[in-house]
C-alpha cells in the first residue's frame, strides 16, 4: 500500500460524514442524534459532519421501522452514496421491526435484507454515546476497507 492510499485510508476514519435516513422511525433515534452535535458529545471532535445529502456522506445512519413504502427510498438513497460507504442501523426497529413487527404495512425483517448493514446500535432509542461509538466503529471499518460494500466491490473486482 503506497503512501497516498494510506493517507486516504486514515482520512476515511478521521472524517466520517454522516447522512441521516429515517425509514419510518418514531423520531426517537433521530432526536438522539441531535445531542451528538451538542457541546457535551460534540461529534466534530471525531471529524463527524452531518450532511443533508447522501452524495456527501460516507456513513448512512438508518433509523426506524422499515415500511413497505420506505424500502424503495432506502435502496435509492443507498445507491446515491458514493463508494466507499458504510451503513449504521440505529435502534431496535431496523433489526426487527420492534413493536411494529407484524403490521401489514411494515417489512417485518431485518434491514440486512435491504442494504448491507455494517454496525448495529442497539437501544430504543440508543444513547448518544452508543451512536457515537457506532459511527466510530463504522469509520474504523472504512479505514480497514472492511465494510460490507467495500468487501463486495473487492470480491467483484477479483472475480
Amino acid at each position: 500500500m503506497n503512501l497516498i492510499e494510506r493517507v486516504i485510508a486514515i482520512s476515511r476514519r478521521r472524517s466520517p460524514w454522516i447522512c441521516r435516513l429515517n425509514a419510518g422511525s418514531c423520531n426517537g433515534c433521530d432526536i438522539e442524534i441531535t445531542p451528538l452535535l451538542s457541546p457535551r458529545y460534540d461529534a466534530e471532535q471525531l471529524g463527524v459532519e452531518l450532511h443533508g445529502t447522501p452524495k456527501h456522506a460516507d456513513i448512512v445512519l438508518i433509523s426506524g421501522t422499515l415500511t413497505l413504502r420506505s424500502r424503495e427510498a432506502i435502496l435509492d438513497i443507498y445507491a446515491q452514496v458514493p463508494n466507499p460507504k458504510a451503513v449504521v442501523a440505529l435502534g431496535s426497529c431496523p433489526a426487527s421491526g420492534n413493536v411494529f413487527a407484524g403490521s401489514p404495512l411494515v417489512l417485518s425483517e431485518s434491514l440486512d435484507s435491504v442494504v448491507p448493514v455494517d454496525v448495529w446500535v442497539p437501544g430504543c432509542p440508543p444513547r448518544p454515546q452508543a451512536i457515537l461509538d457506532g459511527i466510530a466503529r463504522a469509520a474504523k471499518l472504512l479505514e480497514d476497507g472492511a465494510t460490507k460494500s467495500q468487501l463486495e466491490s473487492r470480491r467483484g473486482r477479483l472475480s
Partner: peptide
C-alpha cells in the same frame, strides 16, 4: 483529512 477522504471517494 476531509480533502483527502473526498479525493478517495467515487464520483457519482
Amino acid at each position: 483529512f476531509d480533502f483527502m477522504k473526498l479525493l478517495g471517494k467515487e464520483t457519482v
